[in-house]
């Protein structure tokens, strides 16, 4: 592609125009993607109570209000508890399953794969209604445990996809070498395989964490006032009375996503290096 777009000296006028137009379109689409997120940040530092420009002045009052509110703090606590528990569960189950799917093609392999990935594509509202009906007689509605179990199912495919992708580049000769040197399977796994695929496992875990931490539809169905999660609190806030407190919470969540994205990139590079791709 480079040859056309980096414009050879003999480029015609039409080619030059096309070149400029494509750059302009790219810049516009990138601006469309990033600006809405960036606009929220200054609004959260407003000293006024309306979400518009120009800002009447700068202050941290909305952060004080956010971090001083028991409602927001307890929803944050609930979200963290649910996200960490479902991440642990999904990561263990998902990593084991990826190892199994990698080890051999067994009968029904494709069907198993389709089932394992399906929580990603089934509309969330269907999962929500399904678990709402199903968990109620088990006493799992209105409990963080019920939400954790549902979120684990939703998060597991991300772990399977990420870990499977890492395993595809894994040289099985390494675990064979470990076995030939007398390591049993467990030792070989923990001393050889796991350290190499660990960046992939951690990426999968981060995906799982975000999936649970962001999930609101199932939370709307399964939680009562006592189990309110952060996204649910955001949802109610946006629907009822959108105030700069929401902007402050959003800003903190944006900082979190920047952190997560950076960690993911570091992990990706490390994983490629460990598996000798680069």
């Amino acid at each position: 592609m480079g040859s056309i777009l980096n414009l050879p000296p003999h480029a015609t006028g039409a080619q030059k125009a096309w070149h400029v137009a494509l750059w302009a379109l790219t810049a516009l689409v990138l601006a469309f993607l990033i600006l809405p997120i960036l606009v929220i940040i200054p609004l959260s530092f407003s000293s006024g109570s309306f979400l518009n420009f120009p800002l009447p002045g700068l202050s941290l009052r909305w952060y004080h209000e956010l971090l001083g509110s028991e409602r927001w703090l307890s929803s944050l606590r609930n979200s963290v508890v649910v996200a960490i528990s479902s991440t642990l569960l999904a990561t263990v189950l998902g990593t084991l399953a990826s190892l199994g799917l990698q080890r051999a093609r067994f009968p029904g392999h494709a069907l198993v794969m389709a089932l394992v990935i399906s929580p990603m594509v089934v509309p969330l509202v269907i999962v929500a209604v399904g678990v709402y009906f199903f968990y109620a007689p088990l006493g799992l509605t209105g409990s963080l445990l019920g939400l954790t179990l549902a979120h684990t199912a939703l998060a597991a495919p991300f772990v399977v996809i990420t870990v499977s992708a890492t395993l595809q580049g894994f040289d099985t000769n390494l675990s064979r070498a470990a076995a030939s040197l007398g390591a049993n399977q467990t030792t070989a796994f923990f001393r050889v395989t796991l350290p190499i695929i660990l960046p992939g496992v951690v990426s999968g875990a981060l995906f799982a964490f975000v999936t649970s931490f962001d999930e609101v539809v199932v939370a709307l169905f399964l939680t009562g006032p006592g189990e309110r999660t952060l996204p649910r609190q955001m949802f109610d806030g946006i629907r009822e009375n959108i105030s700069p407190v929401i902007a402050a919470a959003a800003t903190l969540l944006i900082v979190l996503s920047i952190l997560l994205m950076t960690v993911m990139e570091v992990l990706r590079r490390r994983s490629e290096r460990l598996r000798g791709i680069r």
Binding site: V216, P231, I238
Partner: peptide, 8 residues
């Protein structure tokens, strides 16, 4: 977060 983007 989807809620951050929708809220924005």
């Amino acid at each position: 977060s989807i809620l951050v983007r929708t809220g924005a």
